[in-house]
Design a protein around this nucleic acid. Structure first.
Lengths: 181, 181
DNA sequence: ATTTGCCTACCTACTGGTAGGTAGAGTCCA
DNA sequence: TGGACTCTACCTACCAGTAGGTAGGCAAAT
């Protein structure tokens, strides 16, 4: 089952990047975890850059789908923002993993150019969604959205460092309140 | 000049961690940059964990001093917050480096326990300073402060990924405005 | 018969860390 | 004054282990 192994490898790699960083995991780790040999990983993903691109592409589409689901389930801007915060909260996995985008950002210099572009595109996609779902009374929706995403990602970092999701809650408590006001 | 070399190594290592991450630099890199042999680095800092501890300790005291300087130069809470934002902006080095604390956070699993504790202590120190310098009209100063630090660190990530300091400006534009209101 | 998905076996370069040595400066005692 | 000793700050040479990556083979499925 090619597809199964490939997907399993992506799952393992995603968890690895999000918990240990891009420079913190190796093909050997992946091979061990999946129970196959290192060379077989190269069959599915010739290079680490290639693996990373697949990782980001999948993450992008998956995340975008979740944003659309939020739109489908909630009408009011405040509720949509609430749901976004919850989405990021879940992504934390109890303080064990960062958002893939945040995890990659720390290893900027080690990343291949296409991956960097994908990360920028991902951020822009999320910022655009936030901006579009801000109450129309907000002024300067662009900076508002950038600020909100920054706060969400920073809250991830804080919670990850203490392995404590309550730090995420504390750091985002003001978020929705700010938008409502 | 023992002190000079040791300081130079700390400077190099700090830049390395902040631009490439903890798992993204090696003793060999440092040795090359300083023009001495790898083994000589081990003379000054027996292990990488030891080096990291020195790094964080120095960063903590230096940063704390800068916060005290802000207090000495500004009286109004808004001005102090403004100065803090400027401090983080400068730390970005034009999108080339993260805050040391953020840079370490992504490699959580690779860090020695004492270093993790130092990072948590650093964050707490900054949060306490922010909380203490919030307008007294603010309610829930704890979450406010956590939220502000998160936004600053998230803004760092955004700017780092695009190597563009203007993203930091966009992501922090709402910050002081929020406190003033 | 070819493709798929894995394997063994290997490569070069590098990882953090260690063993043991040495030039030179400073200190201490006679 | 000069020999004995110690300390600093570096060195060469090495260790086991790991990094990402490659060449070529083999069995099963299509």
């Amino acid at each position: 089952m090619q597809a199964d192994t490939k997907t399993a490898l992506l799952d393992l790699a995603e968890r690895a990047v999000r918990s240990r960083g891009y420079d913190g995991f190796s093909y050997a780790d992946l091979a061990r975890a999946q129970g196959i040999r290192k060379a077989s990983i190269h069959y599915h993903f010739p290079t680490k850059a290639d693996l990373s691109q697949n990782l980001m592409a999948r993450y992008h589409t998956r995340f975008e789908k979740q944003l659309l689901r939020i739109n489908a389930h909630h009408d009011r801007p405040e509720d949509r923002l609430d749901a976004l915060v919850k989405l990021y909260r879940d992504a934390l996995n109890n303080g064990q993993t960062l958002c893939l985008c945040v995890a990659f950002s720390g290893s900027h210099d080690s990343l291949a150019q296409p991956v960097r572009a994908q990360i920028r595109a991902f951020r822009q996609m999320v910022v655009d969604w936030i901006a579009a779902n801000l109450p129309s009374t907000c002024d300067d929706q662009g900076s508002q959205a950038q600020g909100i995403l920054a706060q969400l990602e920073g809250a991830h970092l804080a919670a990850r460092m203490s392995e404590d999701v309550s730090l995420f809650d504390a750091a985002t408590a003001t978020l929705v309140a700010r938008v409502r006001s």
